[in-house]
């Protein structure tokens, strides 16, 4: 991804001011190393942002879990409501009776994606972490490992592979046709589409926001009255886009979690 950026944006020198370069494009998503020369280059602002999000999520749930009482305080009530929402609507509905094992991962996954998506509208960061595709691939890889490990530990490796690649009732002459297809759909298409769905939604949303805000700002500063009116309108409308992005961010966190639960459920399902 990063090596493509100079190809895609030949007019940019690739300097430090990439974020303000117009028009916004893939180059606007480039990361800046935090401390070049001292820390390795992969310690960049977006990695830091993901770590901050993880710390926030851990801190939030630890704080919510502290000092639990039989009669809940307001804080505990809030925490329990959030937890119950995830437990009842995602984990228990989809995974059935053995949902408890997977609940910590699902709650952590949802909170982490949600916080990272909120960063796209949060003034300190103004960048949704998962609009960098590497982060989305990382999460999809975790989910991939989880649902395969759950299936393998339940059925054993060979048996699990057979269940995942061969639906019941297929006559043997068609096996050579069906097995590669099922393999691709279960082990390759699923994690990749999971990652791409999250990435593409946030990437496109952030791009639209940049067009409205940065473009509006440039029009406002242009000094031509008509352009300045258009720029003001663009900035006002950007708040509607921000609201839409809040919705999209929450929805994508939810969908990612739901699909993770679905994949686990189909890997450990009793009978197809």
């Amino acid at each position: 991804m990063l090596s493509l950026i100079p190809l895609l944006v030949p007019m940019e020198g690739g300097g430090g001011e990439e974020h303000s370069a117009w028009p916004p494009g893939v180059h606007s998503f480039a990361s800046r190393p935090l401390w070049p020369g001292v820390l390795p280059d992969w310690v960049n602002n977006h990695a830091l942002q993901a770590v901050i999000a993880a710390a926030l999520v851990i801190g939030f749930w630890l704080w919510m879990a502290r000092g639990q009482q039989v009669v809940p305080s307001k804080k505990q009530f809030l925490g329990e409501q959030l937890y119950n929402l995830l437990r009842n609507t995602i984990a228990r509905d989809i995974l059935g009776h053995d949902y408890r094992k997977f609940l910590p991962y699902l709650v952590a996954l949802f909170s982490f994606i949600f916080v990272n998506n909120l960063f796209g509208q949060f003034f300190l960061f103004m960048f949704p972490t998962f609009s960098k595709i590497g982060y989305a691939y990382g999460l999809a890889l975790l989910t991939f490992i989880l649902y395969n490990a759950a299936g393998i530990s339940k059925y054993g490796f060979g048996n699990y592979l057979k269940r995942m690649t061969l639906p019941a009732g297929v006559p043997w002459p068609l096996w050579f046709l069906i097995i590669p297809l099922e393999f691709i759909s279960n082990f390759i298409a699923r994690p990749i589409t999971l990652a791409l769905r999250l990435f593409a939604n946030l990437f496109a949303g952030h791009l639209v926001i940049m067009v409205f805000v940065v473009g509006g700002g440039m029009l406002l500063e242009s000094g031509v009255l008509f352009y300045m009116i258009a720029g003001g309108a663009s900035i006002i409308f950007s708040f509607a886009i921000f609201a839409l992005e809040l919705l999209v961010g929450a929805l994508q966190a939810y969908i990612f979690t739901v699909l993770t639960a679905q994949y686990v459920s189909s890997a450990i399902a009793e009978e197809h």
């Binding site: 297809l181 298409a189 589409t193 699909l259």
Partner: peptide
């Protein structure tokens, strides 16, 4: 028990099977 989640996943799976 699955509600609409099952529908979403099934739809996505069917599309992904046809395309793959």
């Amino acid at each position: 028990a699955m509600g609409e989640h099952g529908g979403t996943d099934q739809g996505l799976r069917i599309i992904s099977i046809l395309i793959s």
